[in-house]
C-alpha cells in the first residue's frame, strides 16, 4: 500500500487533492462522492451580502478561460446556517475561503467564521485593498503582512494565505505571510487578463478584465510554487491549471504539499477522483511509498540562488 496522506501543519489530509475556491460547491455531490477528496474548499465568502459582476462573466481563450464572477455572497449568516452544515456529513476537513476590503474587516469575518466544523481558513488576499489604492493585498509584502497579522489575532484555526500571480514580489509576499503567522500558502489565484471581440470591439467580459485560469496559468503557478517552497518553511498548496495527474505530480515535485483543482473540474467533473486514483497508480508503478517522497524532490542542485528567486526571465 502506498501512503497518499499529506501534512499541512497540524492538519493531515488523506490525499493531496482538493478543489480550488470558487470552482466547487455541494452541487458536485450529484456527480461523485465528495468524501473521497483530501479537503473541501468553499467559494470565498464575505461578511456582507454582495451581488456579483455583470454578465458575461466568463469567456474562453485558447486552451484556457477568463472569469469575472467577482464574489457574489449571501453573507456570513447564510454561510454558517446553510453551507457549513452540508459539509458536516463528511469527515473531510472543511476549508472556508474568506475575503474583505480592509484588515479589520478580515479580522472580523475570520473570528466570526471560526466555528465548529471549520478545519482551516483560506484568506483570499487577492482582492482589492480599498483603504489604500485598490491593489490586491497580496501584491505587496506590507499589505500581506498587515492582513495576515490581523487574522492571526482573530482565530486559532490554521490560516492559509492565498497569493496572487499579479505581483512582482512573489518570495517577499510569501515570507511576509509566513512571518505574520500563516500556516500554509495557496499558490495561486488567477492572473489579471483581458479579451476583446474583434467584430464588436467590445471586451468579452462584462467587467472588462478578468482572471485567467486553466492550462495557460500552469507554468506561472508552478514557478511561483517553486519559489515559495524555496523561501518559506510552511507548506505550499499548488493551484493553477492542474488538469491531470501529471500536472499534480509536477507541482508536488516543485514543492507543493497538496494541490487544488479549479477549471479542470469544469471540463471534467470527475477529474479530482480520477487524479487521486491515478496518483495512487503512479506511486505503485514507480515504487514510491508515499506522497511526501515526491514533495520538493525537484532536481535543481545546480541552480544558483539568484536564479531560483529571480523575477525576470533569463
Amino acid at each position: 500500500m502506498v501512503d497518499l496522506t499529506t501534512r499541512l501543519g497540524t492538519l493531515t489530509l488523506k490525499n493531496p487533492v482538493m478543489p480550488a475556491s470558487g470552482t466547487f460547491s455541494d452541487d458536485l455531490a450529484g456527480v461523485f462522492d465528495l468524501g473521497c477528496l483530501g479537503a473541501h474548499v468553499t467559494k470565498t465568502v464575505t461578511r456582507e451580502i454582495r451581488g456579483g459582476n455583470p454578465t458575461p462573466r466568463v469567456c474562453e481563450v485558447r486552451g484556457s478561460m477568463l472569469n469575472s464572477i467577482g464574489i457574489p455572497s449571501k453573507g456570513i449568516d447564510h454561510f454558517i446556517t446553510e453551507v457549513i452544515p452540508f459539509y458536516q456529513r463528511y469527515e473531510t476537513p472543511l476549508v472556508v475561503s474568506i475575503s474583505a476590503h480592509s484588515g479589520d474587516d478580515f479580522a472580523r469575518i475570520c473570528e466570526e467564521i471560526s466555528v465548529p466544523g471549520v478545519a482551516a481558513i483560506e484568506v483570499n488576499i487577492s482582492c482589492p485593498n480599498i483603504e489604500e489604492d485598490g491593489k490586491a493585498f497580496a501584491m505587496r509584502p506590507s499589505s500581506t503582512r498587515m492582513v495576515m497579522e490581523k487574522v492571526r489575532g482573530a482565530s486559532d484555526l490554521p490560516l492559509w494565505a492565498k497569493l496572487t500571480p499579479n505581483t512582482g514580489e512573489t518570495t517577499e509576499v510569501a515570507i511576509a505571510a509566513q512571518e505574520a503567522g500563516a500556516d500554509a500558502l495557496v499558490v495561486s489565484n488567477t492572473l489579471l487578463s483581458m479579451a476583446i471581440d474583434i467584430h464588436t470591439r467590445k471586451p468579452k467580459l462584462g467587467s472588462l478584465m478578468g482572471g485567467l485560469s486553466g492550462p495557460s496559468l500552469k507554468p506561472i503557478a508552478l514557478r511561483m510554487v517553486y519559489q515559495c517552497a524555496k523561501s518559506v518553511n510552511i507548506p505550499v498548496i499548488g493551484c493553477g491549471g492542474i488538469s491531470n495527474v501529471e500536472d499534480a505530480i509536477e507541482f508536488l515535485i516543485a514543492g507543493a504539499s497538496a494541490v487544488q483543482v479549479g477549471t479542470a473540474t469544469f471540463i471534467n467533473p470527475l477529474i479530482m477522483p480520477t487524479m487521486i486514483r491515478d496518483l495512487e497508480a503512479y506511486l505503485i508503478k514507480h515504487g514510491i511509498s508515499s506522497v511526501s517522497e515526491l514533495v520538493g524532490s525537484v532536481d535543481d542542485a545546480a541552480a544558483l540562488d539568484g536564479v531560483v528567486f529571480m523575477e525576470a526571465a533569463p
Partner: peptide, 26 residues
Amino acid sequence: EQQMACGIGMCHCCVRPFRRDGAIVH
C-alpha cells in the same frame, strides 16, 4: 440561455436577473 462554464452550479457565471417579490434576484 446564458454563457456557461461548469454547467452544474458551481461557478455562478451563468446567472440571469429575475423579478421576484418586488426585488431583483439572480
